[in-house]
């Protein structure tokens, strides 16, 4: 497996979209690849950081409401 693929599997894993076999493939790759091991480590940390931050976004419909109000104001 190439590093590109390993990186992709690691990404999928961060969103819980990697299958059991994909995880096995990834683990066996990073066992021997220092470069990907580092990427996987950072990738996991990035997910943790987002979890810790507890960021919120506004829903799309809320944003749409604000946009509509702004357009109305501009067209006045």
């Amino acid at each position: 497996m190439k590093c590109e693929k390993a990186g992709h599997l690691s990404d999928k894993d961060q969103y819980k979209e990697a299958s059991f076999w994909e995880k096995i493939k990834l683990v066996s790759h990073i066992l021997f690849c220092k470069f990907c091991r580092e990427y996987v480590k950072n990738n996991k940390r990035l997910s943790e950081v987002f979890k810790e931050s507890d960021l919120k976004t506004m829903t799309r419909s809320d944003k749409l409401k604000i946009k509509k109000r702004l357009y109305e104001e501009i067209l006045k």
Binding site: L55, K56, T57, M58, K63, I66, K67, L70, Y71, I74
Partner: peptide
């Protein structure tokens, strides 16, 4: 006001402002 695009404006800043406010 003429070249302001509320679409971009809101997309660019609303999440930041939201977290600041909450």
């Amino acid at each position: 006001i003429n070249d302001l695009n509320p679409n971009l404006w809101v997309d660019k800043h609303s999440d930041y402002l939201f977290n600041y406010t909450i």
